[in-house]
């Protein structure tokens, strides 16, 4: 299966197949990238990248610093719109719709595709308000109390904060803050959760907490994670995309990519010989 998958996905010009969700890839894909280019002030940061993102799986993006993986991640929920120098082309097909089509409202995109950032960035408000604000402004009708509890439980934070929901989120430790940010994103019940190096600012214990959490979450959510940590990518993800200098070097089943990479560069990178 994987040989076929690699072959199909690695060969450029498979535009039709990626766009039409043909069974090149054994999973049901929720988001498809097809010939994506992203430019900073006209200079290409991401070049002709195509790969699918499997539904309810974890896809990790790896590669050396500056390879464009964070830029690519931010393009998946239109967060690059806030950087005026960034332009892009190519197709991002999400549920049959191009994310960048003029008729698509970026605010709507972000309601379905949530994001957790590199550094924990809770709002300087109470723990409760951190979670409840997003659903509230988006017209959530049911009980916010229940939603807050449910989200915090999903993020494995409930037991630690249930007695202090109305204290400032800034009183939490870094690892707790990051789990709060995850809970905040989950409260929107997103289809896809994007994570930009969510553990890079955390100690190993908090990192382990979050990795356990990701395992739990993938039964319900699709997760795309950027990570610098090879072991983390190997441990948690189902699929891995390896990028270098804005180009997709290799995409495939994680185990395959780490144990039997098809490309020399991938092997060098995952075994730590460069990057």
């Amino acid at each position: 299966m994987s040989a076929q998958l690699d072959e199909k996905l690695m060969i450029p010009g498979q535009r039709e197949q990626a766009a039409n969700n043909k069974p090149a890839f054994a999973e049901e894909s929720i988001l498809n990238l097809d010939q994506v280019n992203i430019y900073y002030s006209g200079k290409a940061a991401i070049k002709e990248v195509s790969f699918p993102i499997a539904k309810q799986k974890i896809t990790s993006l790896i590669g050396p610093s500056g390879c464009g993986k964070s830029t690519l991640l931010r393009s998946l929920n239109r967060m690059n719109d806030f950087i005026p120098e960034v332009t892009m082309d190519g197709l991002f097909t999400y549920n049959g719709q191009n994310l960048n089509a003029p008729s698509v409202d970026p605010v709507e995109v972000r309601r379905h595709i949530g994001m957790v950032f590199q550094k924990p960035n809770p709002f300087p408000k109470t723990i409760y308000k951190n979670i409840a604000w997003g659903p509230n402004i988006n017209g959530y009708q049911k009980s916010l109390d229940e939603l807050v509890e449910h989200s915090l439980k999903q993020a494995a934070l409930w037991d630690e904060v249930k007695d202090r929901l109305h204290e400032s989120a800034l009183s939490l430790s870094g690892g707790q803050q990051q789990r709060l940010c995850i809970a905040r994103a989950l409260a929107m019940e997103p289809d896809i959760l994007l994570m930009d190096e969510p553990c890079s600012a955390l100690d190993p214990i908090s990192t382990a907490h979050i990795e356990d959490l990701l395992f739990e979450l993938k039964t319900r959510y699709t997760i795309v994670i950027v990570t610098h940590n090879m072991q983390q990518a190997a441990r948690i993800s189902d699929y891995t995309a390896f990028l270098e200098s804005g180009e997709l070097i290799e995409f495939g089943v994680t185990e395959q990519l780490f144990t039997m990479p098809q490309k020399q560069r991938t092997e060098e990178y995952v075994t730590g010989r460069f990057g």
């Binding site: 605010v107 709507e108 994001m115 402004i137």
Partner: peptide, 8 residues
């Protein structure tokens, strides 16, 4: 960014 990412 946190707010925008929540669909604000």
């Amino acid at each position: 960014h946190a707010a925008f990412a929540l669909g604000a």
